[in-house]
């Protein structure tokens, strides 16, 4: 009876909402109960954006993630804002290419992934978000890699089907990153 609460946070434009939608679809395909809730309003226009995703074996109550099991931080303000909210024993995944500081807590497991740099090096500079999702699938066993391709097929709009492959590559890059 597992429930995984995920919070993805960063700047508007980093693909925070898209990454969350991918996870939600992945959960749906795995026959789980899911919810996806974005921040909306002025913060999306150049400020911080975040998105709550819940993937559960039981019906989702509140879709608001107050105590995430997994935090994916894509900029420093997001890490500072949410670091202390993460559940004890939870996971924090940090884009270390954009965040120079270390996580101060020692009761969570932190993974530093220079996702933005990796994305630039690989030639898909806009997909740091999916590299981080790859890492998340690796370190969070409730999520795992299964169903990834089907979820990407759902979440990439048909008009942009040419981007499916590169998204999968970004996910794999993050998944394989040690």
């Amino acid at each position: 009876m597992a429930t995984t609460q995920i919070l993805i946070a960063g700047f508007g434009g980093q693909g925070v909402l898209f990454a969350g939608k991918f996870l939600a679809y992945k959960g749906l395909i795995a026959d789980k109960q899911v919810s996806w809730l974005p921040s909306y309003g002025p913060e999306m226009r150049g400020g911080t954006a975040n998105c709550s995703v819940i993937i559960s074996d039981t019906p989702v109550g509140s879709p608001i993630v107050g105590t995430p099991d997994v935090l994916v931080a894509m900029n420093l303000p997001s890490l500072k804002k949410y670091e202390n909210d993460v559940a004890k024993g939870g996971i924090i995944i940090v884009d270390s290419a954009l965040i120079n500081e270390k996580v101060e807590r020692d009761d969570v497991t932190t993974y530093y992934v220079p996702a933005t740099k990796m994305a630039n090096d690989e030639g898909f500079s806009t997909l740091a978000n999916m590299i981080l999702m790859g890492k998340l699938m690796k370190v969070c066993e409730e999520i795992g890699f299964d169903g990834t391709e089907a979820a990407i097929n759902k979440v990439v709009p048909p008009k942009k089907a040419n981007l499916i492959e590169v998204n999968l590559k970004a996910l794999k890059t993050g998944y394989d990153f040690e």
Binding site: K21, L28, S35, W36, L37, P38, P63, I64
Partner: peptide, 10 residues
């Protein structure tokens, strides 16, 4: 309300 409008669910 805003949450119901903005959230996604199956």
């Amino acid at each position: 309300d805003g949450t119901m409008g903005q959230m996604m669910e199956p």
